[in-house]
Design a binder for these strands. Structure first.
Lengths: 342, 342
DNA sequence: GGTGGCTGAGAAACCGCTTTCTACTCTCGG
DNA sequence: CCGAGAGTAGAAAGCGGTTTCTCAGCCACC
C-alpha cells in the first residue's frame, strides 16, 4: 500500500502529510497554521486547502512539547460534590476558556495524602494550578511550592511562598452572623465544626472563641463538611439545648435542617440555623437559609486572572480578601422565649 | 556558567541530565523509570539515586507524545452547576483515577455550538471522551463520531455510531411518577419542560403524552433546567390550576418549590411536586422532594468502564438502561379535595 | 576452541510540532 | 552595475521522552 497517499484510512494526518500534499515544507505549514510571518498568499492558500481537505488538526500534545506549555490549568478541591467548589470551578472554566485554556479537575475527597499527590501530578500536566481550600499543612504546602509554581490559592494563605491568595474574611462573616443571632436573643450557639484540616474552619472557630466573654455560650461540636455530617449531629445540638446553629458551611446546615425537620423541630421557631457560603440552594429551600454569602464565581474569575498573570510572567494583582455579605433569610428568628430584639 | 552541572537552578531536570549524572544512556534511564526489562541492579541503583537527588520527574507531555496516549479523558456536560452532572463527574474521576487517568472537564452552558467545539477540542487533548447528555443534534453527533472516538454517551443514544451508551429509562420513571400522582387523586398535571435540545426531556414528554387518554389532563409549560427557570414558572402552574408539578429535573422542582413557598402555597397540601434525578439535596429539603432516583455516581463508574475498555481495544460491556427508582418523600400528597386513593 | 544463543546497554530513530538558522531571490539605492 | 537589505521558504535542530536496532560480552555446548 502506498503509504504516502493522503487520506489513507489508518494513517493519522500529521503536519508532514499536509506539507507533502501542499508541496511545501513542514515549516511553512506550521507558519500558515499559526498565522505567523508572511507567507506567499498562493502557498498559504494551497496549505489551507490541503489542510482542510485532509481534515488536518495539529496535535496538541506535540505543540505542547514544542512550545513548552499545554494550555491547561488544573484545579484541586477537597470535595467535588460541594456546590461551593463547583461554582468556583465554573467561574474558573469560563474565565480560562476565554483565553483558550482548558481545565483539569481533581478532587481529593478531603484526604491530605491524596491531595498532595494530586496537586503534584495535576501540576505536571498543566501550566498552572489552583489550589482550592487545600487541606495539607502549611509546612507541606511551603515545601511543595517550588514544585507547584505557578499556582494560586483560594481560601488559604501561606505568606512567603509567592503564591497569590484569594481569601474570604471568615472572621467578619462569623461576626456578622453572631451579631445577627445575638440581636435575635440567642444566648447559646452551637458551632458545627468543619474538617479539622480546613483553614477556614480554624478561622471561623477562632472568630467565635475570640468574642468578648459572656456575650453568649459556645458549644463546639465536631461535625464535618457534608450533608450527612450535619444530619448526624443535629440530635446533639438539641441535647445541648442550643437555640441557634452556626454551621461550618451550607451543606452542613442543610443536613441539620433536614434532621430537625424529621424530628418535628421548628426552624426558626425553636432553633435558628445559619450556614456559610451561600450556595445556590440556600435561597430555595424551606425555610430559605440565612448564610454568609461568599462570591464563589468571582473567586474563580479572580483566581484565573492571577494565574494568567503568572503564566505571562506579569505581576498578578494584589491579594484580595472578600468580605462575606450576611444574607438574612427564613432560617433564623427570635430565640424561643427571648424578649430581646434589635 | 557550566551548563552541564546538575541541579543548576534554571535548568529543568530532563532525562538527559539524569543519564549524565548516573553515567548511563537515556535509554537506560527510561527503562529504569518504567521498571522495564532487566537492568543491572547496580546501574538501576545509580539511576534511581541520581533521579532522586535531582528531583527528576518525567515530562508527561513528552511521554504522551512518545507513547501516543495522554492518560487523560474528558467529560463534557451541559451545565457544570447541576449536581446531577457533578455526581457523574465524581463517579468518573474516582473510577478513572484508579487507573491513573485524570479528567478534563468542560461545560457547554447549554449552548450547542459551544458544545460541538468543546467536544472536539477536549477530545484532541485526551485519549477519550464522555459526552454527558449532549445537546447537539443526532446528525451532528453522528457526523463527529469518527473525530470523537473513542467516546461514550451518557443519557443519550445514537445507534450505529459505535459509541457505548449509558441510559436512564425516563419513560419508566415518568410512568412511576404519574402512577403515584394518579393514585393520590391528581387529575391535572403540569410538566415543566427542560431544554428543547435535551433528549431526556423529549423522552419524558413522550412518555407523558403517550399515557392513555383521559387518565389525566396534561399542561405543558416551557421551563428550562435550572432553579431560576423553575422559580419563574411556578406562578403559571397556579394559574393553570394544576394540582401536581412534574418537573424536568430536581433543580427545576426546587425552584418551583421555593416560589410556591414564597407565595404561601402549601406543598403538598395544595400542590404536589415531583423532581427527577434525586440529587443529594432532594432528601434534605423541606419538604423532602419526591423524585425519580437516577444512579448518578454509578453512571460515572460505568462510563469509565466502557471508555477504559475502548481505550484498551477490548469490547465494552453492553449498553445499560437504568430504571429510576421512585423515591416517595414529603413533596407529594393527596390532591386537594380528592377522595381517590390507592 | 569455535559458534550459537542470550543478556544487557548504548546509538539512533521516532513521536509531531516549532523555530532558528541559512540560503536564495528580488528590490532598491548609490 | 553591483552590493546591501528585505523578504520568503526550506533544512535542521530542538522539545523530552520511548523503543527498535545493533552490538559487545558472556555462557554453554558441541
Amino acid at each position: 500500500m502506498d503509504t504516502s497517499r493522503p487520506g489513507r484510512p489508518g494513517a493519522p494526518v500529521t503536519i508532514g502529510r499536509v506539507a507533502e500534499a501542499a508541496g511545501v515544507s513542514r515549516a511553512t505549514v506550521s507558519r500558515v497554521m499559526n498565522g505567523l510571518a508572511s507567507v506567499d498568499p498562493e502557498l498559504a492558500g494551497r496549505v489551507r486547502e490541503a489542510a482542510a481537505r485532509l481534515g488536518y488538526e495539529p496535535s496538541t500534545v506535540a505543540r505542547s512539547l514544542a512550545l513548552g506549555r499545554t494550555g491547561m490549568v488544573a484545579i484541586v478541591v477537597p470535595d467535588l460534590e460541594n456546590p461551593m467548589f463547583q461554582r468556583v470551578l465554573h467561574g474558573l472554566t469560563d474565565a480560562a476558556g476565554e483565553r483558550g485554556h482548558r481545565l483539569l479537575v481533581a478532587g481529593s475527597n478531603e484526604d491530605v495524602r491524596e491531595e498532595v499527590v494530586l496537586a503534584a501530578e495535576a501540576r505536571r500536566r498543566c501550566d498552572g494550578l489552583v489550589l482550592c481550600a487545600p487541606r495539607m499543612g502549611t509546612g507541606q504546602l511551603a515545601g511543595m511550592a517550588a514544585k507547584l509554581a505557578p499556582f494560586v490559592l483560594v481560601n488559604r494563605e501561606v505568606p512567603g511562598i509567592g503564591a497569590p491568595s484569594l481569601l474570604v474574611d471568615h472572621a467578619a462573616g462569623i461576626r456578622d452572623i453572631v451579631a445577627h443571632l445575638l440581636a435575635l436573643g440567642h444566648q447559646r450557639l452551637a458551632y458545627l465544626a468543619g474538617p479539622p484540616t480546613s483553614a477556614s474552619n480554624r478561622d471561623r472557630l477562632d472568630a467565635l472563641r475570640g468574642y468578648p466573654a459572656g456575650r453568649f455560650e459556645l458549644v463546639e461540636l465536631e461535625c464535618g463538611a457534608t450533608f450527612a455530617d450535619g444530619h448526624a449531629v443535629a440530635d446533639q445540638v438539641l441535647r445541648e439545648r442550643a437555640t441557634a446553629i452556626v454551621a461550618y458551611n451550607d451543606l452542613v446546615a442543610f443536613g441539620a435542617l433536614g434532621r430537625l425537620h424529621e424530628l418535628g423541630v421548628e426552624v426558626p421557631g425553636q432553633v435558628s440555623v445559619v450556614g456559610f457560603d451561600d450556595i445556590p440552594f440556600a435561597r430555595y429551600t424551606t425555610p430559605p437559609l440565612t448564610t454568609a454569602s461568599v462570591p464563589q464565581v468571582e473567586l474563580g474569575h479572580q483566581a484565573w486572572h492571577r494565574l494568567w498573570a503568572l503564566l505571562e510572567r506579569r505581576t498578578p494583582e494584589p491579594d484580595v480578601r472578600f468580605t462575606p455579605r450576611l444574607e438574612v433569610r427564613g432560617s433564623t428568628g427570635p430565640a424561643p422565649g427571648a424578649l430581646r430584639y434589635m
